[in-house]
Design a binder for these strands. Structure first.
Lengths: 203, 203
DNA sequence: GAAAAAGTTGCGCGCTACGCACTATTGCGC
DNA sequence: GCGCAATAGTGCGTAGCGCGCAACTTTTTC
């Protein structure tokens, strides 16, 4: 079994949350964010509007949920990497685990979803709300580098920079004229970060 | 005169916008974001609630306006730096221009404002909404490095990384136990970025 | 199988964001 | 200066959201 000890109840909760976030994303991609009512999302997932608000406190939150979950999983993956691995290699592999799989080659659904996230300011904003996932990532970095996630600048900066790489790579993924796969863009971004972002004009 | 050719009318608009953003920030710091109505902000600035919404489309937007304006000014400052200056030196100086002045030593007002921004998820989210300022910064970086702001990954990544430095430095600025001035933290963050964020445990 | 705990739902309220039409103010050409 | 066009400010009305509250239903536990 892959499940730890879920408890039948928590399973249903997770399933409902998944259904809601999928429904929200699908509807928003299809008809645009403004033309989706909370009512519609709830109906799509077979729950009442009120229940919807028990899971997500805003429309945007539901849509963005899957993306934020990726960051969360990446933080977990980073904790699982062998301690002997160099930081940036571990970081790259940990981030590729949730981000790389769906994006080996440009998939229409994925592309549409990313385009939605980047085009709607409200979603862009919601992506970083609170920054809980980023904090988890920072904590994992801290554990690996022997720094303090609260008192030291380093882990926070690394986590924020990693998120910057995700953002920039996604951005590039859309505007690339000959449609390029996501993964190389992302690894390139991380590589550039680890190399100190050298000025290409003086290279 | 420092003004280009403002036109008396646009001056009043700018003044009103300033008044509104100041009022919003002040009230939010004093009584917390949730206890501030749009009505209050409008009253504080001497305009009708409806007019408020002609300037800012949300409560958070008004509060965050000053901060985003700093990034905008930094982008302009970067364009004004001499072309011979190395990228990261120019970037550091450009960013310090709007960010460094008020923060040479921990000022109670400034501290309270930063704390508000970091503690309220809604404001945190609003800070990066749309990312127009970040795009301006990327454009300035592109102009300086001979890259294309649309087609190349590099300028977007540098801009996003710079914003990450702002975020991390602000974060650190608050949690530093012996209250530390902002400027050194910020320059240190940029220095680390330019150095490729080396793992401190293997140094 | 019954009590307890947790999830779901309907109702209602305060607030927000914004379209629309109207009024007041400003800028500009003469 | 003067009047007209353009633009900012305002009041009103509306759709929708987020959430507290108090039932009701389902699952868990003993």
């Amino acid at each position: 079994m892959t499940t730890d000890q879920p408890g039948l109840r928590e399973r249903k909760k997770a399933a409902t949350r998944e259904a809601l976030s999928w429904a929200a994303l699908r509807l928003a991609v299809e008809r645009g964010l403004e033309n989706v009512r909370v009512e519609d999302i709830a109906a799509e997932a077979g729950v009442s509007p009120r229940t919807y608000n028990n899971y997500f406190s805003s429309k945007a939150e539901a849509i963005v949920f899957r993306h934020r979950d990726r960051v969360r999983r990446a933080a977990g993956a980073l904790r699982g990497r062998p301690a002997t691995e160099p930081l940036w290699e571990a970081l790259t592999r940990a981030l590729l685990e949730p981000f790389g799989d769906t994006a080996e080659q440009p998939h229409p659904r994925w592309t549409a979803a990313v385009r939605l996230l980047l085009s709607e300011p409200a979603l862009q904003a919601e992506l970083w709300r609170g920054g809980a996932e980023e904090a988890q990532l920072a904590a994992a970095v801290a554990a690996r580098t022997g720094t303090d996630p609260d008192r030291d600048l380093y882990p926070k900066l690394v986590a924020a920079a990693a998120m910057a790489a995700v953002k920039a790579a996604n951005d590039q993924y859309l505007t690339a004229d000959p449609p390029a796969p996501f993964q190389p863009l992302f690894t390139e971004a991380l590589r550039l970060l680890a190399a100190g972002l050298p000025d290409p004009s003086t290279r």
